[in-house]
């Protein structure tokens, strides 16, 4: 058993390669809960908080691409420049746990845990984010849809870590909404993120907590694109919004658990989709 606090990405990757039972520690907001609740043993921990490459983000204006380091905390996405670039991400960040959790929790950690209730994940999916991975063997990038494999399962290899997430800035509208049975600090019962891309005239919607992993509603997206002029974002009929919500709800695959029922989740996610669309479009 050991704890390592590398200060560079190369050092971190070397440790991942060398240590047999390595466990990655980002903000600790998932990992330490498991330790405190005796859910897993502590082996060789690589703490990433001092790896400077992971703590930064940058905006490449020539490609309209923003790359956010896996170690950037949610608090940093709530306000300021990142929030302006990605309002939906800011809205999602604001719902992550408590202010204390947002000061520690990271997008990389959310991806590492890969819970279907991960608050940041629907936004990343709706923004068509790319997950950039690295190991001592090299780097690779995966569309987020290929990175998330199932409930708490992702495409990370044992010796690999999430370095950053890249997303295009979009012109249009983006939003996020999450249902929980308390007004703050609550695990999502159902969530949705909608992106309306006015340049391409396309819509993308991703749902949280209503399936084994984050769900993209491609059929509802297609339907909306053919029934509504997303580029204009004007004159949205109530009927269109309702139908969109219904179609989104049909693509959800929720289950019953102690936080809610499948029936409610299916209903709620449809309401969220409808409302997000109405928010994004002038009626």
């Amino acid at each position: 058993m050991s704890i390592h606090i590398p200060t560079s990405l190369d050092d971190a990757l070397a440790l991942l390669h060398e240590l047999p039972q390595v466990q990655l520690l980002a903000g600790g907001t998932d990992f330490m809960v498991e330790v405190n609740f005796n859910k897993h043993d502590v082996h060789d921990v690589v703490a990433l908080r001092r790896v400077t490459e992971l703590q930064q983000w940058h905006h490449d204006e020539t490609t309209n691409t923003v790359t956010i380091g896996a170690g950037v905390v949610y608090a940093e996405m709530e306000h300021g420049e990142l929030a302006t670039l990605f309002p939906a991400l800011a809205e999602a960040a604001r719902t992550v746990g408590s202010p204390q959790i947002r000061a520690a929790g990271t997008l990389g950690g959310n991806l590492g845990t890969c819970s279907p209730a991960g608050d940041g994940l629907p936004v990343l999916f709706a923004l068509d984010a790319v997950v950039n991975l690295a190991s001592h063997r090299g780097t690779r990038s995966l569309p987020i849809g290929e990175f998330m494999l199932g409930p708490k399962r992702n495409a990370l290899a044992q010796d690999e870590l999430v370095v950053s997430i890249s997303m295009k800035t979009n012109s249009g509208w983006q939003g996020y909404a999450k249902v929980g049975t308390r007004n703050a600090m609550v695990i999502s019962v159902a969530s949705a993120s909608l992106v309306l891309d006015t340049v391409s005239g396309t819509a993308r919607i991703a749902l949280g907590s209503v399936g084994p992993t984050i769900i993209r509603c491609t059929q509802a997206e297609q339907w909306l694109q053919t029934h509504y002029d997303i580029s204009a974002r004007k004159d949205l009929d109530e009927a269109i919004a309702t139908e969109f919500g219904l179609r989104v709800s049909q693509e959800s695959r929720p289950i019953d658990d102690h936080r809610s029922t499948a029936q409610y989740r299916r209903h709620a996610v449809g309401v969220l989709a409808k409302r997000l669309l109405q928010r994004g479009c002038v009626q």
Binding site: I3, I5, L25, G27, G28, T29, F31, M32, V33, V35, N36, V45, A47, R49, V73, A75, S98, P99, Q100, I101, A103, A104
Partner: peptide, 14 residues
């Protein structure tokens, strides 16, 4: 940053 100390692995806070 104000954080929950129960979620900080002490040895990683060096």
């Amino acid at each position: 940053a104000a954080v929950c100390s129960c979620l900080v692995l002490a040895a990683s806070a060096v």
